[in-house]
Simulated assay, not measured.
Amino acid sequence: MDAKALKIEAARAALGYVEDGMRLGIGTGSTAEEFVRLLAVRVEKGLKVIGVSTSERTEALCRELGVPMSTLDETPELDLTIDGADEIDPELSLIKGGGGALLREKIVAFASARMIVIADKSKVVKHLGAFALPIEVNRFGLKATMEEIRRESESLGLSGPLVLRIKDGHPFVTDGGHLIVDASFGRIPDTRALSRALHDVPGVVEHGLFIGLADLAIVAGSNGIETLHPVDAS
C-alpha cells in the first residue's frame, strides 16, 4: 500500500470507535482529512454526531461534506477526538503541529474524554525528535523568544537549528495569528522536562509535544492495522 492507502485504512479503523450521538473532536492534516471523508459517508447514511474542528481547514472540509459542526464554546466537553500525529512513541507521547494547528489541536484534545491517534507505520518511533518540534510563538519579541528557547533547550542538552516556518515566501501564520518555530533537536530524552522549559518562555504560546493525551493509536502498515496502547515508562 502507498502512504495514502495506509492513512485511509487507519481512518477507517478509527471510525469504528465513533458512536451515534457523539461529540467529536476532529483533527487536522492529511490523515485526519481521510477520516473526515469516511465520517461524512456515515453521516449521510444516518450517523448522528456533532463535530468540533481543530482548524479552519478542517472546519471547511467538514461543512463541505455535510458533517454537522459546533464550536468548543458551544460544546465545551467532547466524547472523543480523532487526530493524526507526526511522531508517536511507545508511551503514546506525540509530536504534532506539522500542519500548523497544534494549539487548537491540544485545546480540543484536553476537552475530550478520549483521544485516538491515527497514522501510518512510519510515524511510530522509539524516541521523539527526528521530526522537528513545532513551537507556536507570539509575533512580538520573536528574536528574544527564539534566543530563550535556545537557552532553555541547551540547558537540557538539546541543540539544533531553530527555523521560523515560511510558506509561500512569508512567515506561516496559524489560525490564532501566531508564528511557528520548528526546532530540530534530534532525539528528546526527557519530553516532560522540555515541555516545562518551553512553557516557561513567555513568548511561547504552545508546543507540539502532546504528553499523556492519547489513549490509543491506530497504526496502518503493510501487515494491516495495529492498535497501540501507552507503555508505562516507569
Rank of each mutant, 00 (worst) to 15 (best):
S222M: 01
H170C: 02
P68W: 00
S155P: 04
D190N: 15
L209E: 10
K121S: 15
G141R: 07
K96F: 07
A130D: 04
R104C: 10
G27N: 15
L65C: 02
E154S: 14
T31L: 06
F210M: 10
A214E: 07
E77P: 04
E44R: 01
F210C: 13
R192H: 14
I95N: 03
G25W: 00
A5Q: 15
V67P: 14
A132F: 03
M115L: 09
G16Q: 02
E226M: 08
A183N: 04
V117H: 03
D73E: 15
S159Y: 09
L133P: 11
V137H: 13
L92E: 11
V181Y: 09
P90Y: 01
G141E: 10
A3I: 15
P171G: 06
T75M: 14
L142T: 12
D89M: 06
L24Y: 08
E56Q: 10
E148Y: 01
G129A: 11
G21H: 08
V49N: 03
V49Y: 05
R139F: 03
M22C: 04
I82M: 05
R104F: 02
S184T: 10
G221P: 02
V36E: 11
F140P: 00
C62E: 06
L65K: 10
A130H: 02
G141S: 03
S55P: 04
T191H: 05
F140V: 08
